[in-house]
C-alpha cells in the first residue's frame, strides 16, 4: 500500500510534457478541423441565452474569422493572430467569472461534438486559460 501510494505520488508529481512531434494545430486536423470546431462553438453559443447576450452587438462572420485565426495561432499553426487584442474586444462587457466558465463549458461541448480527444481538449484549454485576465471583469 505504502509503495503504491509513493509510486503514484512520484508519477503524478513528476508530470512531464511528452515531446510532441506534431503541433496541436495538426492534431486538430489543421485549418479544416479548426473551422469545424469554431462552427460547433458558434452553434453552442447560439443555443445559450445567457452567453448569447454578450454577442448581441457582435458580427458572427467577424467573430468566426477572428476565432479561427486566433485558435490557429494558439495551436502553433501557420498563422499569426492579426485581430483586435483580447482586452480591446472584451472591454465594457463586464464578463463574470461564472460566465467565463460557462463559455469554457460551451467550448468543451463543441470539442466533444467534434470528437476531439480528452487530452487534446485539455491542451487547447491550457493554451487559452492564460488569456482569462484579458477577458473577464473589464
Amino acid at each position: 500500500m505504502k509503495i503504491t501510494v509513493c509510486v503514484l505520488f512520484v508519477v503524478l508529481l513528476t508530470a512531464c510534457k511528452s515531446a510532441p512531434n506534431t503541433t496541436l494545430y495538426q492534431q486538430l486536423n489543421g485549418h479544416e478541423g479548426i473551422e469545424r470546431l469554431t462552427d460547433s462553438f458558434i452553434n453552442q453559443i447560439g443555443n445559450d441565452d445567457k452567453v448569447l447576450a454578450y454577442f448581441r452587438d457582435a458580427n458572427v462572420a467577424h467573430f468566426r474569422n477572428g476565432f479561427i485565426n486566433h485558435l490557429c495561432a494558439l495551436t502553433d499553426g501557420p498563422c499569426e493572430y492579426t485581430g483586435d487584442s483580447m482586452v480591446a474586444i472584451h472591454t465594457g462587457m463586464n464578463i463574470t467569472e461564472a460566465d467565463f466558465n460557462r463559455v469554457v463549458d460551451l467550448l468543451i461541448s463543441a470539442m466533444e461534438e467534434q470528437n476531439i480527444s480528452h487530452t487534446i481538449q485539455n491542451k487547447i484549454l491550457a493554451k487559452m486559460a492564460p488569456l482569462r485576465p484579458e477577458i473577464i471583469r473589464i
Partner: peptide
Amino acid sequence: LHLGALAGYNVFW
C-alpha cells in the same frame, strides 16, 4: 490544477 500537464491529462495536487 494543471491543465493537460501529464500527457494531456489534467493533474491536481
